[in-house]
Design a protein around this nucleic acid. Structure first.
Ligand SMILES: Nc1nc2c(ncn2[C@H]2C[C@H](O)[C@@H](COP(=O)(O)OP(=O)(O)OP(=O)(O)O)O2)c(=O)[nH]1
Ligand SMILES: [Mg+2]
Ligand SMILES: [Mg+2]
Ligand SMILES: [Zn+2]
Length: 495
DNA sequence: GCCGTTTTCGGCCCGACTGTTTTCAGTCG
């Protein structure tokens, strides 16, 4: 784990423990912000700490800077150690139960001496929660159901699984009578790689049967909450679905609200407040109390003298300052894509043949494809031996001759071997149009060794590009230790 | 805990749903 990741983890744990202790919510937010800041920091925190520049980072003040220096000097943060000793670990487990937060968890710990989730389950079955202040039969049943669902489903989902399901459901809601718009929002609209749930916002006249439809969806297995403007259900695959219903004039504000992120809203609404406006999902309230309806998200940003911020950028980092200073990046749009290079066929571990892939690419309006099956050493993935490479090169040549308006580039995804060499001899490498280098083995190397390995491969004149540079598998495996700043420097230097 | 040419103290985004509540706290979005 890098220093940044370690610091992010330490400060996030501090925030969580402070929350369990019932501490000041703004102090908790300060630690959460610090955690996110270190996670996304471009610079090396050790160097900033040495140079006394930690407090130059927005969101890092005297106290957190001091703790960061303490981390680099001693390897610990005493405040973190103290909280860890003070806060019972079972509280941490209890608040993972949906609907059970810090306050109630503490009551359970203090009044019932609950030491584990198993004991909590037992206490529920014995009806021992009924006697507690603020608890009742429904709360007890909800906790019991929450323990069940926690055991069956945990964690986040891949966008590739959640987005098609979300769009199917949104499409169905869009066809209900009285509905003017139904859009996938939340982290899915921001195109996060993994998502916690599905969020959909619907604009409709109030008589429209949207909330009933959501509550009785065939994919739903449990109803979490149902009100006039918001319904939440758990779907069969364990994903939660939140649907927010507003009137058509409120819809642009509601779409913006439900797209998030939370941190983006905190910054944007703080800025609006400084200018005398109050932003909510219903519109913008002027200083005189009148409500302004915005006709679109762009109008909302314009009102605050900001450039339009794309959903993908709304993470509560530097984007609002960048929008004010007119220096937001221009995002690549899907319709700009003309091809792709990292493509496996059935010759190694791909699902489709060359012909099927080209047909699919043509259908998208693409003009080229780069074929890059696995190399020799990746035997577990059907890596190509030298004769299979030769055969594929002939196949691609024939293809290009037959289809002059579409170009297939012949490449390979070569393993970067532990010593940094590529997976074929020079003559074979010279036969490709391009070579991707990827690490598929010996993930446990030290950061210095892994960086040296990758940089050595990049300096090989036959290597054209680096594949999956972090080595992570979303929701399955952390990336290997590597100095990506150094990798990027070498990439720039070697072209 | 962080922040600030209005402030170095007093703010910090704003709202929905639930359950136990007799007026609102807790949890979540
Ligand atoms: N203003 C405001 N909006 C919030 C807050 N929490 C959530 N929202 C809005 C913005 C979120 O993107 C949207 C959906 O909430 P979610 O909890 O589903 O978060 P999101 O989809 O961003 O991430 P996720 O992948 O679901 O964890 O609701 C909040 O505390 N304040
Ligand atoms: Mg979400
Ligand atoms: Mg949600
Ligand atoms: Zn690979």
């Amino acid at each position: 784990m890098s220093d940044k990741e370690k610091l992010a983890e330490l400060f996030l744990e501090i925030a969580q423990w402070l929350e369990l202790r019932g501490d000041n919510p703004f102090k908790i937010r300060a630690y959460e912000t610090a955690a996110r800041t270190f996670e996304q920091l471009d610079e090396d925190p050790a160097a900033l700490s040495r140079d006394g520049r930690l407090e130059d980072i927005p969101g890092i003040g005297r106290a957190i800077a001091a703790k960061t220096r303490e981390f680099f000097e001693t390897g610990h943060i005493a405040y973190h150690d103290d909280l860890k000793a003070e806060i019972p670990a079972v509280l941490f487990e209890m608040v993972k139960i949906p609907g059970l937060g810090a306050k109630k968890a503490r009551v359970l710990y203090e009044k019932l001496d609950v030491q584990s989730i198993g004991e909590l389950e037992y206490a529920c079955r014995e009806n021992r929660l009924l006697e507690l202040p603020g608890f009742g039969a429904k709360t007890q049943a909800k906790i019991l159901a929450g323990i069940e669902s926690l055991r069956r489903f945990q964690g986040r989902f891949l966008i590739s699984e959640a987005l098609p399901l979300a769009e199917t459901i949104a499409g169905r809601l869009a066809r209900l009578p009285g509905v003017t718009a139904a859009t996938v929002a939340g982290s899915l609209r921001r195109r996060k790689e993994t998502v916690g749930d599905i969020d959909i916002v619907v604009g409709a006249n109030p008589a429209s049967p949207v909330m009933e439809t959501v509550a009785t969806l065939p994919e739903a297995q449990a109803l979490i909450a149902r009100g006039p403007t918001k319904t939440s259900v758990t779907l069969q695959n364990g994903l939660n679905l939140d649907v927010r219903l507003v009137t058509p004039v409120e819809y642009p504000s509601a779409l913006h609200h439900f797209t998030g992120s939370k941190e983006h809203h905190i910054k944007l609404r703080g800025l609006a407040r400084d200018q005398g406006f109050k932003i909510s999902e219903y519109g913008v309230e002027r200083p005189d109390g009148s409500i302004m309806r915005v006709e679109g998200e762009a109008a909302l940003y314009r009102l605050l003298d900001l450039d339009y911020i794309e959903p993908e950028l709304r993470e509560g980092g530097d984007e609002i300052a960048a929008a004010r200073e007119r220096r937001l990046p221009v995002l690549v749009r899907e319709e700009q894509l003309q091809g792709a290079f990292h493509i496996h066929t059935t010759r190694s571990d791909g699902r489709d043949s060359l012909a099927q892939l080209v047909a699919a690419a043509r259908q998208r309006g693409w003009s080229y494809l780069g074929i890059s099956d696995h190399s020799r050493t990746a035997f577990y993935a059907g890596g190509l031996k030298a004769d299979a490479v030769a055969e594929q090169l002939r196949e691609i040549d024939a293809f290009n001759a037959a289809q002059p308006d579409f170009r297939v580039f012949a490449g390979i995804e070569s393993d970067i071997l532990p010593d940094g060499s590529l997976d074929y001899d020079e003559a074979t490498l010279a036969g490709f149009d391009f070579v991707i280098g990827s690490v598929h083995s010996s993930f446990g190397m030290t950061e210095a060794a892994m960086t040296g390995r990758i940089v050595a491969a990049m300096r090989n004149p036959y290597l054209t590009m680096l594949g999956h540079p972090t080595g992570r598998l979303l929701l399955a495996r952390d990336g290997y230790a590597v100095d990506l700043n150094e990798v990027i420097r070498v990439a720039a230097a070697t072209g």
